[in-house]
Design a protein around this nucleic acid. Structure first.
Lengths: 200, 200
DNA sequence: GCCGCCATTGTGGTTATCCGCAACCCGGCC
DNA sequence: GGCCGGGTTGCGGATAACCACAATGGCGGC
């Protein structure tokens, strides 16, 4: 797993070099590929940061690469570099969820700003997903009965009320409650409520 | 306050009539204005639904109207109708937060689908805002001391611990706690946590 | 048949929460 | 000075939560 950075795909070597230099001058890690195919071969889901993609390239275009990555469930935010003629293509990509696109010729600083923004977006989204995955994994460890009890705990009901609703003894509810807290890794109903609503 | 619907702004009467007919045939309330200025004069913040806006119009263009509405804090989602030549303009609007744009000539059903989606988006966002406003208003009624106590309640701490941290008696914490629940309109710490994290 | 997991329940005791009643101090306001 | 809101505290009791120890019954797998 490398550090988060900019992944550049452009078939023009001069532009690749210029972009790498530009990003590194702003302390943004950068690496470049000369074609969509080359990038796709190296692509891994744990690449963190943001993709900077030329729209018009030999063989596979930027938007085509974007489609391929979407099919592979890539979460990497994508910023397109588009010439005037390419705008309709880039626009279609934006409607499909691309992070942004900048028209050539672009302002260096603005591009880097957008890239940094995208890298931050990626980081927070990954953190969010990781948290959701943890919660989901813990939820899956609960037994059906425990889930029933948890629902009612989250409605702020007393153990006694829950016991009545489920036609079981209060003691049983207490046991379930302890199991739920243990499995969910929390120490109180308040923490439980926060952890769950934070990932809904 | 009228029902949620489509607000059409287009300087071509034939298109206005066609759109109104189209929307009404799908049970979507619709009303049209012949110019951006006319709409702006009638605009009110409680208009619910979605704005359908021609990009190219006499005097004030669609994107210009959008900018005006943004300045007036309009939350109305906007769908642009754009000809091929207008795409760069519409694109700029999308980057500023427009809901979507469809290129002319458009597919009737797809347009209505998008409009319905935007109306739903508006409804849920308004509900969300209303809830946040309620919570914010209730939070503002808390005294500084109560806020300190609430923070700690939300960390799942025992009244005893809170008392120690604030160097006050447990009884005082209990009193604050009761005040907090009363002012926030909840009956338990769990509800409090949910209401707050639901609006963060 | 034995083991493990799940659900269930009881006893008894500790700790927390929740509240009514009562009271004191302080600062701002009429 | 009197009133009021905010913060503070004590007492005592009702209620709920938490927990260790202990135990039963069902069900699926080895």
């Amino acid at each position: 797993m490398m550090a988060a950075g900019a992944y550049i795909v452009d078939d023009d070597e001069a532009i690749r070099d210029a972009l790498i230099w530009l990003f590194k001058s702003r302390k943004v890690a950068a690496r470049a590929w000369p074609s969509a195919e080359a990038f796709l071969a190296d692509w891994r889901d744990d690449m963190r940061g943001c993709l900077v993609l030329d729209v018009r390239m030999e063989d596979m275009s930027g938007p085509e690469l974007f489609d391929q990555l979407c099919e592979r469930k890539s979460q990497l935010p994508v910023i397109f570099l588009s010439g005037h003629g390419d705008i309709p293509l880039a626009v279609a990509a934006v409607k499909k969820g691309a992070f942004d696109f900048v028209e050539k010729p672009f302002n260096d600083n603005e591009l880097v700003d957008r890239v940094i923004e995208a890298i931050g977006f990626d980081a927070s989204r990954r953190a969010e997903r990781a948290n959701q995955a943890t919660v989901a994994s813990r939820l899956s460890q609960l037994t059906p009965r425990e889930r029933e009890v948890m629902e009612r705990i989250l409605e702020g009901k007393y153990n006694k009320v829950i016991a009545d609703e489920l036609n079981i003894a209060m003691r049983t509810v207490e046991v379930h409650r302890a199991h739920i807290f243990g499995k969910m890794g929390v120490r109180s109903a308040v923490e439980l409520a926060q952890r769950l609503s934070g990932s809904r």
